[in-house]
Amino acid sequence: MKYLFYPGCSMETSALEYTTSMLGVLKTLGAEIEELENWTCCGASVGAVMSDLLGVVLPARNLALAEKAGDGRELIAGCSACYTNLRKATEAARDRASLAKINQALEVENLAFRGTVNTRHLLDVLANDFDMDTIKSHVKRPLTGLTVAPYYGCQTVRPYSPFDDHNHPTSMVRILEALGAKVHHHLHEATCCGTALLTTKPEAGFTIAGTILEASSPADCIATVCPMCHMNLDSYQDKVSKVLGKTISIPVVFLPQLMGLAFGLEESTLLFKRLMVSAKPMLERVGAAQG
């Protein structure tokens, strides 16, 4: 299996461990992946607020590059906001007038967009392109005894969800079970993490993130598939604890980090040390703690 990869801004910086663990896991599973050259920001939640056209032109620029480089390969996005924006541009391209306008803008970049490349969320690829028996066959260190709270966030499954339910997604369950982990289900698996509110309206943001963290807290860790969700749940637990009036401390990891852990990949690929809340208690549980 061959894919193109659109990292997006976060997977290159704050969520580098998501990228390295993803690459390690896909390699183990025998998939080939190539980073899209010359990519730029998808516009995040900001492009569409600056203008309707900018909101689709920014992702379309990257899709046009992918069409040029792709040989029909699908484009993987691991960030749910990038995923949503890229799919939104493809949707817009179905309307001829809107596609023509996008292309009038892309002329200045010497690019043309046709709307033919298929964007897939990394979770979709991991849960649906590989047999669970294949995943099981690579497990060298089963995550037995580890309870994981899946957290999908919002834009992983909304508004587009060709691979899972909008409100009650389950894609992570079969992967986590194949790794040997136990799943802790809760009511907020697809509730929004609060996104920019943690910066612009901290009281609201911390309360929203707190609801998710509290619902997940019986588990040993939370598994995420989006850099924004990860940042909000991992980085603000001391502030959230103050708002909730009780201490919250739970490691928040990326799903490919857990897969890589079970596959026996090295810390240099998994980079658990980059997490803000230490993953040590959780790693000790599966006998993988170092130093």
Partner: peptide
């Protein structure tokens, strides 16, 4: 609008 996190809950529901 400034408290909207663009989570699409209302739109899909």
């Amino acid at each position: 609008m400034w408290l909207c996190t663009v989570c699409y809950e209302c739109q899909v529901s």
